[in-house]
Design a protein around this nucleic acid. Structure first.
Lengths: 229, 229
DNA sequence: GTAATAGTGTCTGTGAGACAGTATCGT
DNA sequence: ACGATACTGTCTCACAGACACTATTAC
């Protein structure tokens, strides 16, 4: 069977999300080549022949963001393949979302003029390269939705955390405020969500908060809905 | 920029789901070529150079299932790209789920020995080609989950339908039984789900059922959870 | 009338949201 | 003492599930 698609190339694009000072932020790189030279874009790269899709994503994560695979939760979002999304030719891109706690400032990679974290709210002002604004919007909506019915929020936090910090994740990602008391009850009473470490954090001007770690569960039943919006 | 991925080919695979005699069923084709000659597989095909991914999916749908784009709801599921999933070489496949009402029996296409509907429950007995069992399982789980929080169930029904038929969709796809009275109340009182046509179906041995059409809403708030399972 | 299917009412338990109250720290 | 943060109790409303009841057809 002869392939009619020999000139299609396959890439992965990464939407690396973290919380920086309570703001949901994404890692962008400034392009050093045409097309879109000087524009900000999602980190990405072509898939190699002997490499699975998520291996490619991990490789790009290491190359362009100096992040090891242990630091993040990686998840496929969607594949984007409009014929002219890349002016160089036909490129189909598999978008991966990477969520991590307190990720470091990026070091500069190849083909890249600069790399930095952007708060989501800052991005209304700038134009992203290619269709990356769509890809990003799709991923952020996915992340927001998955906080509702999975335990994904803990991936934004260090190994040990307090309920207040966990609530802060929900508030920052959703852009809402939540009732502290009701959230506390809901989080602590949901089976499998949290592991009580039976110790306390250093106090920060009030009663010291109990420390928790991520529990064994991955889904939240019943879900934690952002109903009030 | 030289691509290191010139030999990767991109395909779409289709998971065409419908209800046949109250059984969730999928369209499979029997391969007429190596590899996996004689095995049953999901319909699929390579993406052409000037064609968007969903255009490719619609084309395959027309070629291998004689289904027009109006008849189905098409939705991207996930992309599968393990290096040796296809023994002929590196093939990355974007999986699309197509849901439709009462779809016709397929006519035979090219490269295909046979094509028919299989009830999901029959598939435990047979081995699908490539990684298509994984692809199918992933899609069915997606469909089951989306019935909970979207109005997707109506895509399995004709334009005009009764509440009983709608409940039948949920029962068939989830493999559960639901309380008729509670379901009726829930479905009719969820804003945007249904459009009351203010007429009745021909009776079938009992009180004639009111007819409804799909409403304008796409998401179900609050969701219709398969909690009892 | 009976059987069958459609649709409503009613009760009960669970849980979310509002918000008041208690606990434990620093100063 | 007081302010600040962490938790807990209580009330109310909405809704899911169980299930009894009424409605409208065919026979």
């Amino acid at each position: 069977m002869v392939s009619p698609a020999e000139d299609i190339r396959v890439a992965v694009d990464l939407i690396v999300l973290t919380l920086r000072e309570d703001a949901l932020s994404v890692l962008l790189v400034q392009r050093d080549d045409e097309p879109h030279r000087g524009a900000w874009a999602l980190p990405g790269g072509f898939v190699e022949l002997q490499e699975d899709l998520d291996e490619a994503a991990y490789r790009v994560l290491a190359d362009e963001a100096s992040l090891g695979s242990g630091a993040v939760h990686l998840e496929q979002v969607r594949t984007f393949g409009a014929p002219h999304r890349d002016p160089r030719g036909r490129v189909i891109s598999v978008a991966f979302m990477a969520l991590g706690a307190d990720l470091p400032d990026p070091r500069r990679g190849d083909d890249v003029a600069d790399a930095r974290w952007w708060a989501i709210d800052e991005l209304a002002a700038i134009d992203l390269a290619f269709d990356h604004a769509d890809v990003l919007a799709c991923s952020i909506e996915r992340a927001r939705a998955k906080l509702e019915y999975t335990t994904l929020a803990v991936t934004f936090l260090p190994q040990e955390f307090t309920i207040s910090q966990l609530r802060g994740v929900y508030e920052s990602v959703w852009g809402t405020t939540l009732d502290a008391g009701n959230f506390h009850r809901k989080a602590t009473r949901t089976e499998g969500f949290l592991l009580d470490l039976e110790k306390h954090a250093a106090p920060t001007g009030g009663r010291p908060a109990r420390l928790y770690a991520a529990g064994p569960g991955t889904s939240l039943v019943p879900p934690l809905l952002r109903s009030g919006d």
